[in-house]
Simulated assay, not measured.
Amino acid sequence: MNNDIDQMHFLVLHIGEAYCLNNWNYKNICSPFTRMYYVTEGHAQIVLPDKTQDLYPDFMYIVPAFTPHSYICREEFRHYYIHIYNESGHDILEDWILPTEIKAEKGILSRIKKLHELCPEMELTQTDPKFYDNNSTLNKNILKNKQRELYARVESRGIIYQLLAQFLHLAQPKQYVRDERITKTLEYIRMNLNSHPDLDALAAVSCLSKDHLIRLFKKEINMTPLAYINKKRIENAQLKLVTETTPIKEIAYQLGFEDQTYFNRMFKKMTGLTPMNYRKSFHDTGL
């Protein structure tokens, strides 16, 4: 497991206060950034892959990047939203099982309001994710974040750390850290993902035979090394398709896919869409 906080390079993409009235009912959302919410009034729900989470005032909630989810709102509902994007090659939040809900400690709301003050003009102009989960909006807000004054960027990052620390304080490390050999293998995969590490290299790193590595890896991670590598490569492809204008063929090559047809087939198998249709689904509609 990677505990290196130097890999926490979070930028604020969107922040603001939202008032909803039976209109926060968006389905099948899966964004390349992490979402945090602080509820001030009312009640709503987030439907996650493993549960339906109720949202209540004075609690904070988190939805990590690439987590499929939907929203249900049947009454008045007011909340602060914070969308954060990690520029690091590896998001260390992936190594932890985060609590979806935490009771906000005293002073959290004032820090969120301060973060809002430090990030002017970064509110959502549309509440429907299809209008802001797109290439142009993400790139524009990443650039806008970096163009702020140095003190504002430093203070903003400090507040983001404080907010994330609330969830990490109650987080549990994912179980694969039980075997140091698998930990080393995972770290090697992350450092060499784009070069598509083969089974021989992974076996050498883990000091295991290939058959033993496959059995142990599957026991710890619930998938084979190859399946894990492809999963992480496709997640990287999702991020690139949304935040870059790089041609799909070039993205496939950057991620170690020598055959674009295989890349397209693997991408559709994991996301339900071809790379081209996935990119189109995130393009700005012009509104």
Rank of each mutant, 00 (worst) to 15 (best):
R190V: 00
S209W: 00
Q175T: 12
N264L: 01
L213R: 03
E244C: 05
Y253T: 10
N264E: 12
H212C: 02
F257C: 10
L255M: 12
K210H: 07
E250F: 07
N194M: 01
K219V: 09
V242Q: 02
A252Q: 07
N230R: 10
I251W: 09
L208Q: 02
I182N: 03
R265P: 00
K268C: 12
R265C: 04
L213N: 03
V242R: 02
Q175C: 00
A204F: 00
N192V: 00
K210S: 08
K174Q: 15
A237T: 12
N222S: 14
K269R: 15
D200N: 13
I251T: 02
L186F: 01
L199E: 00
P225F: 01
N236Q: 14
G256E: 08
E250C: 02
F257N: 08
R215A: 15
K249V: 04
E187L: 00
K249L: 03
C207M: 06
N264I: 06
L241V: 03
F267A: 11
Q238H: 08
K231T: 09
T246Y: 10
A201S: 14
Q254N: 15
D211T: 08
S195E: 14
L241M: 11
T245A: 13
N264K: 15
S206D: 01
C207Y: 00
M223I: 06
P247C: 04
R215D: 13
D211M: 08
A203T: 02
N264M: 11
C207V: 00
P173I: 03
E180M: 07
Y188F: 13
A201C: 06
Q260D: 03
P173M: 03
N194T: 10
